[in-house]
């Protein structure tokens, strides 16, 4: 693997994480519990679309095959996506969406704090901008988790259920492969193994404030580094890519 191939794959991974979660969050549009939350969730989706756009455009430049960010977003199939599987998990109930957000935003807080120091100028710039957004996403998610955890029996149980269900997708965020190792040596990528204890402490602290039990680490889902996904990604893409697949090159 050359450095160029590694950088292409790495930026795709960063971009895909933003794109896929954005698509999921946008499904809340007009369906959230109340208007203010509806706006908050779609704002988050827009933040992530912006991040995905910059990163996929950069991935296209790195690859050098004249693929625009739109081509990369709408013309790749499931196996060519490198987002962590947690990002593609269905919204479920509101507790599930917030737990997913908590797990992802806490990871992104540490990831982009590291990537600000990346020797790749584009990645460092995206990281600095993203960090401001991520702090807000995280504050919003953790407020809800603490509120719902300490709320009614029903809200507490729903958060606990979501934490239990999504836990097996959290380990994958910290997996590293040849791509990571090559780019860490160049000072471009972040050492994800070093982030894991920080993330675990952070999550444990929030969950204990929410009176929610942190699950024991057991079996962890894996596969996205190789483009292997849960059954949900295909359905998400068929929704998201329908127009470009049915009418290639259609423009607004």
């Amino acid at each position: 693997m050359t450095q160029q191939e590694a950088l292409f794959k790495y930026t795709l991974r960063l971009g895909d994480n933003a794109l896929i979660l954005s698509q999921r969050l946008s499904e809340w549009c007009s369906n959230a519990p109340f208007i203010e939350e509806d706006l908050a969730l779609t704002n988050f989706a827009l933040d992530m679309i912006g991040r995905a756009q910059v990163l996929l455009r950069y991935a296209g430049e790195v690859e050098g095959k004249e693929k625009s960010e739109d081509i990369l977003a709408f013309r790749r199939s499931e196996r060519q996506y490198y987002n962590n599987q947690i990002a593609e998990q269905p919204n479920g109930d509101f507790a599930c969406t917030m737990v997913r957000q908590l797990f992802i935003s806490a990871f992104e807080l540490y990831l982009f704090t590291e990537l600000q120091k990346s020797k790749d100028a584009t990645i460092a710039a995206v990281a600095a901008k993203t960090l401001k957004e991520v702090r807000y996403h995280l504050a919003h998610a953790e407020d809800w988790i603490i509120r719902l955890g300490n709320g009614t029996t029903e809200s507490h149980n729903r958060v606990q259920q979501a934490v239990n269900d999504l836990w097996m997708f959290t380990g994958e965020q910290f997996e590293m492969d040849e791509t990571d190792n090559l780019l860490i040596a160049e000072g471009i990528a972040a050492d994800l193994h070093a982030l894991q204890p920080l993330w675990s402490n952070y999550i444990e602290n929030i969950l204990s404030k929410a009176t929610i039990k942190t699950p024991q680490d057991a079996y962890m889902q894996t596969g996205s580094r190789k483009g292997i996904h849960t059954e949900h990604l295909g359905h998400l893409l068929s929704d998201m890519q329908y127009l470009q697949r049915a009418y290639p090159d259609a423009i607004w």
């Binding site: 109340f34 203010e36 939350e37 706006l39 908050a40 704002n43 504050a139 407020d143």
Partner: peptide, 20 residues
């Protein structure tokens, strides 16, 4: 105006509704 259950949520909802 917005709906919220406390000051903290009110500030967040105000931010999301009026200063996007």
């Amino acid at each position: 105006s917005i709906h919220a259950s406390d000051k903290k949520m009110a500030l967040q909802n105000a931010r999301d509704t009026y200063s996007r």
